[in-house]
């Protein structure tokens, strides 16, 4: 066997396990959901392939439209806020001072616990009988639990968004910190020495260099929020659920012949999420190119 062939073989053998595992476990289920959504689902007694009936049923419903807008709201607000605050924290933590490691330990703590832990914390603090309401009662701002604003189980989704922020400010913090570590403090210090204000030094020297990291982290945060299931289920209003919650509700419908609607739901969720991420990345690339052209 010649050298080039051997090299090709070793590349193939190296990649084969990971690629085949993901093909079976990741592509397989998606393909199955796709054909079922198009009407081939013998286990539900549905054999109408190909039909778009399940898609039109989902897309035509008010429930879907409401779920979509609430999903967008719950996904987008925490993405913007955690990007701003996470970046701010990362920049603050870069100052050379004692105790950064110790303090950042607590900021990174939410990152390593399940989202459900965040949900439990938000319930303990912000439920109507929770700790924050008790403190407000103690200082005389509210007289009973009913006076406390409904943060959980309301369509405003404050509880959901608080859990996301609890997990994602630290996430953005870690991603941006690692990018910052790569660029070193010298340029920023030079800008400051030359008379730039802290904000100008950040805006013109640091920000352009960490921007790709910010884009990546906000993209991952949005992608996660858009498909999150257990948090909106636990802390959201009963109706409307977010898209993933509605999808699983369709899957548990007593009329099993309607269950392919769940598959239509997940295909729509995947397409929407992918489409939004694609547009976001394209807008970023264009902006990057226009900036590079100057």
């Amino acid at each position: 066997m010649n050298k080039a062939r051997r090299r090709q073989l070793s590349i193939f053998l190296g990649l084969a396990p990971a690629l085949s595992v993901l093909t079976v476990l990741f592509v397989g289920p998606l393909a199955l959901a796709l054909i079922q959504s198009l009407g081939y689902a013998p286990i539900f007694g549905v054999r109408e392939f190909p039909t778009l009936r399940f898609y039109t049923a989902v897309l035509g419903s008010t429930r879907f439209r409401l779920a979509f807008w609430y999903t967008m709201l719950y996904a987008l607000v925490p993405t913007v806020l955690s990007t701003i605050f996470g970046t701010w924290l990362a920049v603050a933590a870069r100052a050379r001072m004692r105790g950064v490691r110790f303090l950042s330990f607590f900021v990174r703590l939410p990152l390593v616990v399940p989202y459900l832990v965040g949900a439990a914390l938000v319930v303990a603090l912000f439920a109507n009988g929770g700790l924050v309401a008790r403190v407000l009662f103690a200082v005389g701002i509210i007289q009973n639990t009913g006076d406390f604003p409904r943060i959980l189980f309301s369509a405003g989704g404050w509880g959901i968004m608080l859990v996301y922020l609890f997990k994602q400010v630290p996430f953005t913090f870690v991603v941006v910190s690692s990018v910052l570590a790569g660029i070193g403090p010298e340029l920023q210090e030079a800008a400051r020495t030359l008379g730039a204000s802290p904000w100008r030094a950040f805006r013109h020297v640091v920000l352009p260099r960490i921007f790709p990291g910010i884009v990546t982290s906000s993209l991952l945060v949005f992608a996660f929020n858009f498909q999150s299931y257990e948090i909106p289920l636990l802390l959201g209003p009963g109706f409307p659920g977010t898209l993933p919650v509605e999808a699983l509700r369709r899957f548990q419908l007593p009329t099993i012949a309607r269950r392919p609607e769940a598959m239509a739901y997940v295909m729509i969720i995947t397409t929407l999420s992918g489409g939004i991420l694609f547009l976001y990345l394209r807008a970023y690339r264009r902006w990057e190119r226009s900036r590079g052209g100057v």
Binding site: L19, G28, P29, A33, A223, F251, L277
Partner: peptide, 24 residues
């Protein structure tokens, strides 16, 4: 393309993979 494929599961909604996976 290989690198992209190996990262995609992080971005694709878990509910989409999960329901199909359960049936499989």
């Amino acid at each position: 393309a290989v690198e992209f494929f190996l990262l995609v599961p992080v971005i694709v909604p878990q509910i989409a993979v999960g329901i199909g996976m359960l049936l499989l």
